[in-house]
Simulated scan of single mutants.
Amino acid sequence: MQLVDMLHRLRADAWVRRHPDADPQQIDAIRAEIRAGFYCEDHVWRGLILGQARAAILQAVVELSRESSAA
């Protein structure tokens, strides 16, 4: 995805949030486009992201426990 495409999707997301009374089919189409641009359906990619999130959470917990035991 190119930067311009990402910006268009972010602008469309802002529009949907400001126009909740818009045509539901139009809102659904915009949301589908946003999801297609920012969410990958590849299971390997999703697993890698999950692993990175778990590592970041573990690092945060370790650091927080260090800070609380030092206080």
Results as ranks from 00 to 15, higher is better:
2 Q>G: 14
2 Q>F: 12
2 Q>V: 11
4 V>R: 09
4 V>H: 05
5 D>I: 05
5 D>R: 08
7 L>M: 11
8 H>E: 12
9 R>T: 01
9 R>Q: 07
10 L>D: 05
11 R>L: 07
13 D>Q: 11
13 D>F: 09
14 A>T: 10
14 A>V: 08
15 W>E: 10
16 V>D: 00
17 R>L: 10
18 R>T: 03
19 H>I: 00
21 D>W: 10
21 D>K: 12
23 D>F: 00
23 D>M: 01
24 P>Y: 04
24 P>W: 02
24 P>V: 05
24 P>G: 07
25 Q>G: 06
25 Q>A: 04
26 Q>D: 06
27 I>T: 03
28 D>H: 00
28 D>K: 00
29 A>T: 09
30 I>A: 03
30 I>F: 01
31 R>H: 03
32 A>W: 02
32 A>T: 12
32 A>E: 08
35 R>K: 14
35 R>L: 08
36 A>D: 14
37 G>H: 03
38 F>I: 11
38 F>V: 10
40 C>I: 07
41 E>Q: 06
41 E>A: 04
42 D>Y: 01
42 D>K: 01
42 D>G: 01
44 V>W: 09
45 W>G: 06
46 R>L: 10
46 R>E: 14
46 R>M: 08
47 G>I: 11
48 L>I: 12
48 L>V: 14
48 L>P: 02
49 I>R: 15
53 A>C: 12
54 R>D: 08
54 R>M: 06
54 R>Q: 10
55 A>I: 04
55 A>H: 03
56 A>D: 04
56 A>R: 01
57 I>M: 03
58 L>V: 13
58 L>M: 11
59 Q>C: 08
59 Q>K: 12
60 A>C: 11
61 V>A: 11
61 V>N: 06
64 L>H: 14
66 R>S: 11
66 R>K: 10
66 R>I: 07
66 R>W: 04
68 S>M: 09
68 S>P: 03
69 S>T: 15
70 A>Q: 10
70 A>W: 06
71 A>N: 12
71 A>Y: 11
71 A>P: 07
